[in-house]
Design a protein around this nucleic acid. Structure first.
Lengths: 347, 347
DNA sequence: TTGTACGCGTTATCAA
DNA sequence: TTGATAACGCGTACAA
């Protein structure tokens, strides 16, 4: 039914192997026959069968994407679409395809990855997150399968090609920034503490406090998923403290939206009563009220570089591991202000 | 290197074909040997090679996803993540994998799909959008390749299994709703007019106006992508009309965020000066100020059903085409109010 | 109930 | 520069 290399060969009066060479653009085929073969391909509407090719080749032209936890929640966050956008750019350039494994629990995801890898569906993998002692990462390392990760590996940092921002430094600087605005009661609102990014940023936050001789208080630290109600509670508790924070360092714009909304319900005004600074600088950050002051971490580039490195890795599997630090930049909008400023509201 | 069916056969002291049958859970293999073979598989860490299987089988265990325009912009919209979430659920259940083609322009996307299909990478395809005279859809029809579409096909409606909301009815009802609130100057803010959903809703909007003897005005209709500046202009013009609308029917929450933001910059208050009603009921709709009154179109279910139908279609290619209408529901929040209400602001 | 042999569409090796 | 031929790993008639 489907037109194969043999049909082309017959029509062009050559051997199948010749057709194969034409496809690979083998230099030792005369331009003349190349032409003839290509015409035959065109004429018949030939398209190579990737499975057959992979089988003979041990190379699919595809890479796999692994998302954290349930792709569910992950996908709700604009971070992932954006990072995939960066990845697609490279992937498309190289004529690769994208494969996504699906799975809700950690185990399901692991199984999905195993099937992808052992099943020969992909040539390499990008981990879209980095968590402490990650099963998938361990598997990939053990298998010596080409992969890159977005975020810093918890261990084996030097042995794994990874792309991230310098989250420690970023969090430190942002805390510095809030302090420079006069704040010394600064809350930290993070996501799962299994995520290395959370850990790194918490460390940076601590460091800044220490340098400025500001005491670190446990009650200022929140770890909540925040996509749902849980987070609201946490914020309420935080603001009910005897000395509530006057500034919040939030790990993610999506969380920040939740925070903003809760705060607004509590009639606490941002930025007049409390400043909010978050990470990611998602497109929507511009549209919230007040517009979010957020750290642009160049999500697109994170994806782009991750894919780029992976391509290199696939080509040369024993390339020495690299670490690429993507720059970040604070985008000041309306959700932060100096503590000392007069507390007058404009309308 | 990799462990194959033969290795398993050897270890279990059976023929490769027997192993193959065990994998397929062929009933005419004795439980005893099944057990033995399974132990061997376990022991060796065997995983079937999908490419080989596909070749012999002409069935990949994968389906392809096609996004509109540049996956870029598409992906910015929470609609797609959510719809994919619905798809993943089924896909995972059936142990399928997800394939995404990448491409920026319409032609690139088309090529990607052709490669997916002819290359034998997928067993079926879900179109995540429906546009007028779509190249990809035409191709799929011509090839008689199994596919379902989310949205209503522009033509051949009866011949294509598709899942959508009744967008005509929905838009009519929502317009009715705004009219019932006392509005008779209602703007329509839509996306690309190549999208069938836009067309259907515009028709529904018109219908409602006609029934209520409200004149249809061209100057009340906007078609803008809205993710960027373009939309701002359009809204400014709209509000600068001699008789600016007192209510806006917006096709998408993301656009609505943009509208809200522009309106706020213009010091036009929602809902006191103008009501805004939008579609999709994205998670973030709850967090905007004011919280968006939005139509919940059950995005998740759209994806879920589309995948479900596709699975049926793959199993029985000449199943008669179906149309599944997913219910929708208005979620009233703070962005709409009755026109006759006193125009007093609560702080 | 199980084994043999061939085909799926390519690529790669070796000759010519 | 090109052609045969043997893999690649699996499914499946057909035979036993």
């Amino acid at each position: 039914m489907t037109v194969t290399i043999k049909d082309v060969a017959k029509l062009a009066n050559v051997a199948p192997s010749t057709v194969s060479r034409v496809i690979a653009n083998n230099p030792r085929i005369s331009e003349k026959t190349k032409h003839r073969v290509r015409e035959a391909m065109e004429h018949l509407g030939y398209h190579p069968n990737f499975n057959a090719r992979s089988l003979a080749n041990r190379s699919t032209q595809a890479i796999g994407l692994v998302m954290p936890g349930s792709a569910d929640k992950a996908f709700q966050n604009p971070f992932f679409p954006e990072v995939i956008r960066g990845i697609s750019t490279i992937v498309h350039e190289k004529e690769y395809a994208l494969f996504m494994s699906t799975g809700q629990t950690e185990d399901e995801i692991h199984d999905g990855v195993v099937r992808m890898v052992q099943g020969g569906r992909v040539d390499g993998i990008i981990l879209l997150y980095s968590s402490v002692d990650d099963k998938v990462m361990n598997y990939l390392i053990e298998k010596k399968f080409p992969f890159t990760v977005i975020g810093k590996p918890f261990k084996n940092e030097d042995a794994i090609t990874h792309i991230d921002n310098d989250n420690f430094k970023a969090a430190r600087e942002m805390t510095d920034y809030l302090i420079s605005l006069g704040h010394d009661k600064i809350g930290f609102v993070g996501g799962s503490s299994h995520l290395v990014v959370t850990i790194d940023r918490l460390l940076g936050y601590e460091k800044s406090l220490r340098i400025h001789h500001i005491p670190y208080r446990d009650e200022y630290i929140i770890h909540e998923e925040f996509l749902k109600e849980g987070g609201q509670e946490a914020i309420r508790k935080l603001m009910a403290l005897e000395e509530p924070p006057t500034a919040l360092l939030v790990m993610d714009d999506l969380m920040a939206f939740g925070v903003l909304s809760t705060l607004s319900e509590m009639n606490i005004s941002v930025p007049y009563d409390i400043s909010v600074l978050s990470f990611n600088n998602v497109m929507l950050a511009d549209f919230s009220t007040p517009a979010l002051t957020s750290v642009d971490i160049n999500i697109f580039q994170l994806g782009y570089e991750a894919a780029d490195c992976l391509m290199d890795l696939i080509a040369k599997p024993d390339l020495t591991p690299r670490r690429i630090a993507v720059p970040y930049k604070l985008v000041e909008r309306q959700s932060c202000m100096a503590l000392s400023a007069p507390k007058e509201k404009t309308i």
